[in-house]
Amino acid sequence: MQPRSPEPTRYPGPPHIGGARRFAGPPTSFIVITVALIQMVGTLFSASHQNAPRPLDALAILLLLAGPVGLAFRKRSPQMMLPVALAATGSYLALGYAWGPIVLSLALAIVMTAAAGLRWQAWAGAGLAAAAVITGAALTWDEDWPLRASAGVAWAAILVLIGQGFRRRSERLAEYRRRREEAQKAERDEYRLTLARDIHDVVAHSLSMINVQASVALHVGADDPEKLRPALEAIKAASKESLTEVRQLLGVLREDVPLAPAARPSLARIPELAKNTELSGLRVTLEDYSTHQAVGPAQQEAAYRIIQEALTNVGRHSGARSAVVRVVQTAGALTVTIDDDGAGMAGALPGNGLTGMRERAVALGGTLTLHELEPGLRVEATLPIQHEGTRP
């Protein structure tokens, strides 16, 4: 299947890369202050209801604050969090101070170390914490110590797994953002390419006609003044139409002027296109043509632009005197052919015009081919018709 691109001239504006700001969790300062308050207030409260071997003193306060302070290395040096928390928590408990929420900073250090991608350091720290729990439970000589030791080991492992879960989620979000940015870049490139094609088609067609008519005016101006006025009128009409369309396209680039629906090229404007082209001296005949109301706007515009560019190339390069345009609708496609009696493939110079026609057809899932005639050349585009409820 062909990749779907935005409908021509329905310009949504260039996408902005990056999307919403990445959520990186609460600020580090908030985590440090919150954990410090919980450990201080919680321990002071629990100490008042315990008969601890050693009362709280300045060293205990220092150790209660050291663990949360270690979490401040979360962004700059995440490998420092776990050693600081292990040292502060271990020293506090080994010195026999009152039991409290001192382990909160250690638990968060294990989680955030694993979330930072320091997997083995997180498992090593959790292992040391689990070993300390087992040793402490065994020294109590309590018959339930195996249960408490098992619970401590399980919680240490769970903390690491939680941190790894955060890490994987962060990696998935980063991958999603990367793919989204690539897709938005592709949209932006397609948007710019569509504008470039439209500007090329408008300017090339109008300037080609103006150039021809200006040459006619210079040639007949002195010898046949009656032919001078039609040539100047053709120049005026072509320049006016070109300026109108270019202003609209530039307004879209500034994102301050919406493209008027009535100005969008359609099959209904092909007779006008043929009439304007004839002012340049090329005789254009429409065959098997109707407005084809059932055809979608994207296909209508692509067909119009292909015919416009093909006629421009015929007038500029092939030396043809006449061209025949056919627009035929079948059950599943719109077929556009432009025949001329010019130089054939020798006049089909490669360039932006031929590339733009082919890109317009391919963007809608269609094809564009060139066929040698005797004499002349046939440009044939097949555009799948977009039925209601479907997309190209």
Rank of each mutant, 00 (worst) to 15 (best):
R172I: 13
W155F: 15
R119P: 08
W99P: 15
L62S: 12
L106P: 00
V153E: 13
L93V: 15
A124H: 08
T89G: 12
P146H: 05
A58I: 05
I61H: 15
L64E: 13
A98S: 04
R74K: 09
A131K: 13
A129I: 08
L62P: 04
A156C: 14
L86Y: 00
M81N: 03
W123S: 03
A85R: 14
E171N: 11
L128W: 05
L62H: 06
L82W: 02
A124P: 01
V160C: 09
S77Q: 14
W99Y: 15
A129S: 11
R54V: 09
L104Q: 09
M112C: 05
W99Q: 15
P55F: 00
S170K: 06
L56E: 04
A116H: 07
G152V: 05
L139F: 14
R169G: 14
A109K: 14
V103Q: 12
V160H: 04
R169N: 13
L71T: 05
L95Q: 14
I110D: 09
T140E: 15
K75V: 08
L64Q: 13
L95P: 10
A149H: 02
A114G: 11
L71S: 07
G163C: 00
P146N: 03
L93E: 14
P55S: 03
W145H: 14
I162K: 05
A72H: 10
G152W: 06
L128Y: 04
L118P: 00
L82H: 00
A122D: 09
R119D: 01
L95K: 13
M80H: 12
M81A: 01
W120Q: 02
A126Y: 01
L108W: 07
